[in-house]
Amino acid sequence: MLTVDIEKRLDRFTLKARFSCSGEPLALFGASGAGKSMTLKCIAGIEKPDRGYIELNGNVLFDSEKHINLPPQKRKVGYLFQDYALFPDMTVSQNIATGLTRYRGKEKTAKINEFISRFHLDGLESKRPATLSGGEKQRVALARIFASAPDVLLLDEPFSSLDSYLKLELLPYIKNIIKDFKGESILVTHNIDEVLYLCDHAAPINNGVIESTREATVFYNELQEQYKKAGISLPEYHL
């Protein structure tokens, strides 16, 4: 169970994020620059909110009143960056090994191999990120995150830098990963099809204000109404 209730002043608006999720994947849906990524960064501990409270499975990650602010290293939050943020000077294996700091020697090697095969990276072990395709990079980034055994999975527009063919290939793959993942997962996106396919719940975000969480299908109908008013019809989704 992840509970977020934070405020942070930004250049153009004040981010007000208040939501919780437990077990089922949640989508944060909104336009570019609406504060989606900033919300994830606050949860991960990369950015510090001005005020508020973040709690994960009973552990307080951030509490402005009690001056608690755990460093990212202690939050157990897996963050998939938009551009994957693979370490360019390390090989695929070394990148995955950075998530396995709690293992040593043979055990570590075994774990690296386990993640290599689980994420279908066989043969790429000694390659550098610059030589990988977009899909391969994403799998390395995911392998690295899962190697660090996170309790929360934050996906920051995971498909934005992939072409639509690759996206089609990877959507079911990501869906499975989210399904098998025991912790909370939050997806940031501005694509309604990703929301409907991957998430049960959605929270729209407008100018930094996160509205209440609702079922993804309910959200879709609302969005369709908005589009109708603007004279545009959304494609039908059969769910």
Binding site: K41, A44, I46, Q73, R75, Y79, A85, F87, T98, T101
Partner: peptide, 15 residues
């Protein structure tokens, strides 16, 4: 330097 790399490292638990 791409600061995302440092942030990624921190979320992975690296010192």
């Amino acid at each position: 330097f791409d600061e995302n790399l440092a942030d990624a490292g921190r979320t992975l638990g690296l010192r």
